[in-house]
Structures are given as structure tokens and as C-alpha cells.
Design a protein around this nucleic acid. Structure first.
Length: 273
DNA sequence: AGTTAAACCTGGTTGC
DNA sequence: TGCAACCAGGTTTAAC
């Protein structure tokens, strides 16, 4: 469900309210991708410093050496901060009562995770974050560096974007949209992309993610922010989910294919090899 | 070493 | 209507 914009929208909804709040209770539902890694009662009484983000992971930092929680929303997860929680539903698998409300993870498919770690630099957080590329907002990610990173890779550019090994944050929707915006065929081998086109693609990734963030993310089925609001980006998608429709830019037909077991949507008319 | 399949789960939609 | 097949915003692990 959530790509970088949706995760960041979620973060912004909970960071302010949770700062300084204290954990009062913690309960779990069915198992998520990985176990919490700590007895839930251990965290009771801990104060929350804040919530940051790395790629599509959220990091909820506790005060005074109490570590933190690394949270991933998987494919179908969403976090909400509830003032009047009510009992957990069948898809609520993590609930943390705090003095600022109950933080609850709803995740039908259970690909998400909430994992305790002593610090971001310690296991298991360090291992989970170790393969992540640079943040799209990182000034160190220059067009030259991006182009150089594509040079050694023979995998199709769509798959490389999706992997997050070079730049994090673009999942299936935004990888398709950024490639369309940049006019690049998703099947093109990464190392065959010229420097000017790489620069254009990097810019497209950044603009696509920023635009989605400004619109509150995409709500295809069930994404909601921490206040239960829909995102609006999905209505701006040019290719994602639009198989058979006309391309808004060139009038071609949007096609769908499968790469690395994921659907890719693109316009064969204006996305060139 | 690098790239691609299989796996993890549930639920909604499509088609026979 | 019933049921099977396919599809879904992600990532790790195992296998070529």
C-alpha cells in the first residue's frame, strides 16, 4: 500500500502528537512479518521522543535508552492515532496506548512489521536498513552520482527503481509514474541510460514523490493517513492502473506488462528505449 | 556477483 | 450463484 509519500504523510500525522507522550499499554494481534523482539510490558512507561523516517520505514524513538520501534506498513498497512480506540478489529495487529492516544496498525495482509531495536545502528534495525539507497531529498544524490549508480546495473530500470538500492521511496505506482514523466521505457537496461536521461529521471522521481506528498499520497483501496483521510494523488496518475486508456501526453495506449512479478504500466508511444 | 523466482498473507474483483 | 483464478501500494530469502 504505502510508498514513501504515504509513509511520510503518516509520519507527519503522528510525530507531533506523540512527542513527549508516554506508553501506557501495548497489545498485539496476529503475527506480523517479524516478531516485536521484546516483551510488550517492557515498554510501558517509556516516553516518546519522536517519529522519523528512513525510506518506507518509520522509526519511533523512545527516550533515555529505551530504544525504539521500527515500523513498516508492508502492502496493506496503515497507522492511525485514535482518541477513542475501541477494541481492536480482526486486522488490527499492534496497538500502543499512550497519553496522546492509541497508535494502531491495521494490516490485513500482515506484510508489515513492528520491531524493537536498541538503536537504528543496532540489530535488527541496522540489518533491515542496510541495503537502502539514498533518500530522494538527499543533496548528495546528484545527477552524476545517480548516473554512475545506473552504470553497473543490467537490470531493467523499473526494477532498479523498485529495489530502492539507488534511491529509496518509489514503489510500484511512483516508479511507473516517474518513468512516464521522464519518457523512459521501463524495460530499458539501467546501464544503457545516458547521463542526460538519468538526470531527467532523477528529477522525475523527486517531482513525482513531492507531488504525491503534497496531495496526501495515493488511496487506491484502503490507504488513510493517521487521521483517516484519503490521499488524492491517484487521480493524477498518468499510467498506473490505466491499462488500455489513452496516454494524456501522446495519445498512445497505456499498456501493462509484468516485471519482477510486479505490474508495470507504461506508454509505448512516448516512453522510449 | 547479479538477476530472477518463491515466499509471506488476506481480500476484492473478474470470468467461466 | 458458486467457485477458481487473478490481482493488489513490499521486501527478504532461496535458487539459477
Amino acid at each position: 500500500m504505502p510508498e514513501l509519500p504515504e509513509v511520510e504523510v503518516t509520519r507527519r500525522g503522528i510525530d507531533g502528537p506523540l512527542r513527549g507522550a508516554r506508553v501506557q499499554s501495548l497489545s498485539l494481534g496476529k503475527p506480523l512479518r517479524w516478531p516485536l523482539g521484546i516483551a510488550p510490558a517492557t515498554l510501558e512507561g517509556a516516553a516518546i521522543d519522536g517519529v522519523s523516517r528512513r525510506g518506507k520505514y518509520l522509526w519511533l524513538q523512545f527516550s533515555e535508552g529505551a530504544g525504539g520501534l521500527l515500523i513498516h506498513l508492508g502492502m496493506s498497512g496503515s497507522l492511525s492515532l485514535l482518541q477513542e480506540p475501541g477494541p481492536p478489529g480482526p486486522h488490527d495487529h499492534f496497538s500502543m496506548g499512550t497519553s496522546a492516544g492509541t497508535l494502531r496498525l491495521t494490516d490485513p495482509r500482515r506484510f508489515g512489521a513492528v520491531v524493537w531495536s536498541a538503536a537504528l545502528e543496532h540489530e535488527p534495525a541496522a540489518r533491515l536498513l542496510s541495503r537502502l539507497g539514498l533518500e530522494p531529498s538527499d543533496p548528495a544524490l546528484t545527477p552524476g552520482l545517480f548516473h554512475a549508480a545506473l552504470k553497473g546495473r543490467r537490470t531493467p530500470i523499473k526494477s532498479l527503481l523498485l529495489s530502492g538500492e539507488v534511491v529509496v521511496g518509489a514503489g510500484n505506482i511512483y516508479a511507473c509514474e516517474a518513468l512516464h514523466a521522464a519518457g523512459i521505457d521501463p524495460r530499458l537496461r539501467s546501464d544503457r541510460i545516458s547521463r542526460p536521461r538519468a538526470a531527467r529521471l532523477l528529477q522525475a522521481v523527486r517531482e513525482t514523490l513531492e507531488r504525491a506528498l503534497a496531495l496526501g499520497g495515493s488511496t487506491l483501496r484502503d490507504f488513510r493517513d493517521a487521521h483517516g483521510m484519503d490521499g488524492e494523488f491517484q487521480s493524477e496518475a498518468r499510467v498506473y492502473g490505466r491499462e488500455g486508456q489513452d496516454c494524456a501526453r501522446c495519445g498512445g495506449i497505456v499498456r501493462r506488462l509484468v516485471q519482477a512479478q510486479r505490474s508495470t504500466y507504461f506508454c509505448a508511444g512516448c516512453q522510449r528505449r
